[in-house]
Design a protein around this nucleic acid. Sequence first.
DNA 1: ACCGTATTCAGCGCG
DNA 2: TGAATACGGT
Length: 766
Amino acid sequence: MGNDILKQLNEAQRKAVIHTDGPSMVIAGAGSGKTRVLTYRLAYLLQQGVDAFNVLALTFTNKAAREMKERILELVGNRDARNVWMGTFHSIFARILRVEGHLLGFPSNFSIYDTDDSKRLIKSIIREMDLDPKVYNVNYILNRISGAKTSLITPQGYNSNAEIVNADSMAGKPKTGEIYSRYASRLKKADAMDFDDLLFNTYVLFRDFPDALYKYQKRFKYILVDEYQDTNHVQYMIVKSLAADNENICVVGDDAQSIYAFRGANIRNILNFKKDYPDLQIFKLEQNYRSTKNIVNAANSVIDQNKDQIKKTIWTQNDEGKPVSLIRAASDAEEGIMVTDAIFREKMNHQLPNSDFAILYRTNAQSRSFEESLRKLNIPYRIYGGQSFYKRKEIKDLLAYFRLVINNNDEDALSRIINYPARGIGKTTLEKITLRAGELGISLWEVIEKPAESGLQVNAGTISKLMNFMTMIKSFSVQLKTKNAFDLAKQIATSSGILKDLYEDKTPEGLSRYENIEELLNAIKDFTEQEIEANEDGEIVSPVRTLDEFMEDVALLTDADEKDKDDGNHVSLMTVHAAKGLEFQYVYVVGMEENLFPNIMSLNDRADLVKERRLFYVALTRAMKHVTVSYAESRYRWGNLTPCEASRFIEEIDDKYIDYPRKALSTPRSKFPFEKPKSKVSTPGFSNYKKKNLKKIDNTSDAAPAMSAEEMEGLQAGMQVEHQRFGKGKVISVEGLGGNKKATVFFTNVGQKQLLLKFAKLRILQ
DNA sequence: ACCGTATTCAGCGCG
DNA sequence: TGAATACGGT
């Protein structure tokens, strides 16, 4: 290999790569080869004889970490490169907390709650406190808590901070601080951390346990942080403390592309970096290799409107290219048609693959009109950022079993599955358990383990159901360390009844849920069959790959793995946020309207407009060959048609780099902007009205007695029956016992129905 | 306990 | 408009 890897870099890139010792900051303009610098820098370090164990690289996403690892392996060809600690803040610090968490009172098998789990817990706390869930909106509460943790404010700190308490009172939510306190203690009782805790607790660990800090300072001699413009305050503090000893820290980013401020990302981290390290070396990558001159200049003219930036001049040697095109449509539906037509023409004229095209929008809700028109043109497309695999209900359910088996105290996992599949432990029972646990300050599991001692008032039947459930979970738990992940997972899926439950659901959705479970099991099988790996110390972890090892990987995973699975020849549809870090030949930035982009929700003050502008800058700089921006003069927003005007950002593009359509072409069109909507509006209103009337008539009928116990016992498949409301029908199947006995009946008039015999007004005819 | 229907409420989304 | 939740009937 030798030094020739350096020959593949330009002057500025090379300087950034070889400056290994001492603090440095790389300002990497869009398309300037940032990833290249990052990977070459790491490869260079390893080549210089730095031990992979001494390098820490923090990335923004799992995907970025994975791709970088692969490229470094290609460059150095040294299996050692795999030992670099590379990953997201969350995954790296979760790893550290598994080892050191005991210092803070956490077992190494603590659970990690995702946003979904956190919201469920907050909801249940709001219910328990008898607060109005409309006033105490979960999203608001979680945002407040998350913001507090990010700013290193504990529940105590929160409640004693007059400014914060006042702000909550003014917002009509004075109990927010108490919810935060309860939330924090519930997480602790459940041996669980949410995403913010992974960072917050790491900060506390390093602050309160100097020995632990010292250990990791010695280990991480070289630290590298990607996407530094999107780090928040805790992340900043952690990195600062880790780097304090060696100061071999290199941060890479672009202030112009900071677009996650709404999540606590603090652009000052990059603007003020100089103050922390007076002998900082700054490297600017200003040559763009991605886009045409027109695109670079158009983007520059937009971002130049933002003052208070790090000064830099992005330029390119690439072709002139074509000016930005502008599409003006009468409605959102027409925008869909016009944009996809433009894609179709471009694709046909130049014989291009679908994957050269991307449609970028501000909000996910905008994707529909483009989907419809792409379908009509038979162009394959893929929408990014929908519901991820690991967020689907059936997957979360099975994972909740795994979590509970690994950590019995996991409250969220337990409440999620204690009655799924249905085993007769209902809402009331769970409420009683939660209440007892709260009063005694113990976990839900501990109440179930010792119902008598904890004073749980439920009947004997319920107790035995609880015992069965507990015994089942325990029987899985004892096998955790001996059985391999796949065998145990399969056993849990089967004996919990999940597989059976989904198998019996023959609807298309049920089928897909079943397939998803299969897919998860396959993923676990793959994991089980991977070659045995050594941990960071080179020591073999364990001869069998166990389920808790699998879950460590999974907790911090998103759907990123799924993305490159298919052939890849599709048009990409995604939000501008999701497009960060990607590039496409042809980019269509759609919905360029005031209130939508810039987004009205974000326009509280001047600083917000600056953030929206950076977002538009990111959108423009995704393109290699050509950009088209489009807007509609009217659009359906939340069910009603709203007139729209063109975004101010369009005008901010210097006239030299954008083509305005000739007025003669677009004016006549705007005369008929309301064509399609009219018929659409009236229909749903009418059918709703009809349904309401129907229901009234039904309600007038008198109650008739349900079936007698004898009749229920005697009911069998094939029998003819009559239902008070549904009329005559034939019994297809009968299942369940006693009071839970259910029948599936096909009625001549209304089709197939499932009935609970206890309640159904059903008469046996023959 | 569960299912279909009424009602409500919208932002971008890493881990 | 449509997804997510609340409600009421069985």
